[in-house]
Each structure stands twice: as structure tokens, then as C-alpha cells.
Computed example of a mutant assay.
Amino acid sequence: MATTAARGPADRATGRAAGSAAKGGRLKENQTARTFYWMVLPAVVLFLVFHTIPVLQGVFYSLTDSPGYGDWSFVGLSNYTALFGDPRVMSAYWFTFRFAIIATVLVNALALTIAVWLNGRIKWKNTLRGVYFIPNVLSVLVIGYVFQYLFAGAVPALATALGIDRLSTSILADPQLAWVGIVILAVWQATAFNIIIYIAGLQTVPQELYEAGSLDGASAWRQFTSITFPMIAGFFTINMVLALKNFLQVFDHVLALTNGGPGTSTESVSVLIFKGGFQGGEYGYQLANATIFMIVIIAFAAFQLRVLQRREVSL
């Protein structure tokens, strides 16, 4: 009885201490949660002000005949229905899709090849990585004007000297070939970023796998298809999605090289929206075009992620 009585106050003290500790823990968690929300709030406000609200305003004005200034009237969905019968809009979408798909494939094929090569046992590996990254830090407009000079002057002069009549004039002035010049510029500039992503992925592949493959007599190509590519499938997915998304929004490359010409043969959707919306008095109409284009880009990205992530699982 004495022992039980002696333990009573001690147990009660222990219980009070445990309760205080639990209460202190919950208080600390609440303080942490409040701190987290206060830290996130500025970013949320900035996102709403500079992204969500402008997007919603754009969707609203796409339902009007606004020229970008002055009076406007509500026209409902007539802008959207007119888009599908506009040959200039259809031509811009065709050029954009063709350009984006070709450039995405070329960029990833070239970047993966260079990344695998740079990841091997070669001299000045780090120096070459820095050299290959240079195009990514240069302004697209600046290098675009350099490429314009090359295509308009240097390449025709060299082709004339070699007797290649097809290239004796600027390809940027040829409606059938002008898009090739834009692809070359875009691939040259974008490959750098993809190389860095692939190199980061290659660093995660254990060297023991390659050693085991070599002992089993696997060729370099077999090691790539059975070890390297499956291990960096996630990085491949990231590069493919980002590359296609960026190329669908191609703007600077076209503006620097051809400005959409000759005629409208290289006019991308972004360039058309810019010209028509800000220079042609078609503000409401091109906002409808921009809304459709936003949905298209989201759909492409979602489809890519779904397909490529399934591919990752199968690998």
C-alpha cells in the first residue's frame, strides 16, 4: 500500500510531463505549419497576379472583338469557330507541329549521342562539357542573326564555289527550305541543355553494370540498349517533354531568321499570335488562338508523359 501511494504522485508527475511534451510538440508543429504557409503565400500571390489572372483575362477577351485598345463587343465563340476555317492559322499550326516534332527528335538523338561520348574515357572531358553548353547561354536572337548571315552569305558562297546550285542562294529565301534553317538553329542551340540532363542521368548508372556486361561479352550497342537507356529512361522523358513544349512555342528563332517568311511559309503559331494580336488589330481573335494553343500544348505534354512513363515501366 505504501509503495502504491508513493508511486501515485510520481506517475501523475510523469503523466503531466508527457502531456506537456505532447502539447509542446503539437504547438511546435502548428508554428511550423504557419511558418510554411507564410513562406509560400508570397509565391502564391505572385503566381495569381502574374499568371492566373492574366490567363483568365485572356480567355475572357478571346470572347470579344477587342483590337487591344478602345471599345469592344462580346462575340461569344465566333472567334473560335473562325479559327478552324482560317488557312493562315492552319498553315501556322502545320509548320509548328512539323518543326517541333523534327527538332525534338534531332535534339534528343544528338544530345544523347554526345552525352554518352562525353561520359566515356576521353581527354578534356570537363572542358568539352563546358564548350558544348555555351550555345545555351547565348541569346537566341543574337545567334539567330549570326545564322542568318551564314545562310544568306557564307553558305551560298561556299556552295557556288563547290558547284552546288541548290544552295547557291539563301535557303531562307526558299519557301521549301527556309524551315530547315530554323531547325538547324534550334537544334544547335537547344542540344546543350539536353546534354547536361543526359550527363546527369548517366552519372546515376552504376559502373558495375558495365563491367558485368563486358564480362558477359556484351557489345557497346548492347550495353547501351540493355543498361544505359533503361537506366536513364526518366531523364529521356524529361528531355522529350521539355523539348517538344519549347519547340511548340518557337518564336525567337523564326523572328531572327525569317520573320515568318518567305510569305507565311515559316510562320509559327507564336509568331502569328504576336503579329496578329499586337500588330494586326486582331487582339481578341488571336487570344482565342492562344487559348486553343495552350490547350494543345497541355494535351501534348500530358500524352507524352503518359506514353513515356509507361515505356519507363516496361523497360
Rank of each mutant, 00 (worst) to 15 (best):
K123R: 14
V180C: 01
T3A: 12
G234I: 00
A152Q: 04
N289I: 07
G68P: 05
A109G: 11
T237I: 06
R166I: 00
F224Y: 07
Y210H: 14
F147G: 02
Q286G: 02
R12Q: 14
A178N: 03
Y93N: 03
T113L: 15
A18Y: 04
F274W: 09
A82C: 01
S270T: 10
A212V: 15
Q148R: 11
I182M: 06
G276K: 07
F95S: 08
G76D: 07
V107Q: 15
V49M: 11
R222W: 01
R311I: 13
T191H: 01
G217Q: 06
V250F: 03
G260T: 06
S226L: 12
I292K: 07
F97Y: 14
S73D: 13
T64E: 00
I53A: 02
A190T: 11
I238S: 05
R12M: 10
N136V: 03
S91H: 10
G163H: 00
G8C: 05
L106Q: 12
T266W: 02
A243E: 07
D174L: 03
G201R: 12
N259C: 07
M90C: 02
M90R: 11
A157Q: 04
F193H: 04
S268W: 10
G284N: 09
V271R: 06
N136M: 06
Y145F: 14
E282R: 13
K125R: 15
L177I: 07
A173S: 12
G280I: 05
A159C: 03
L138T: 12
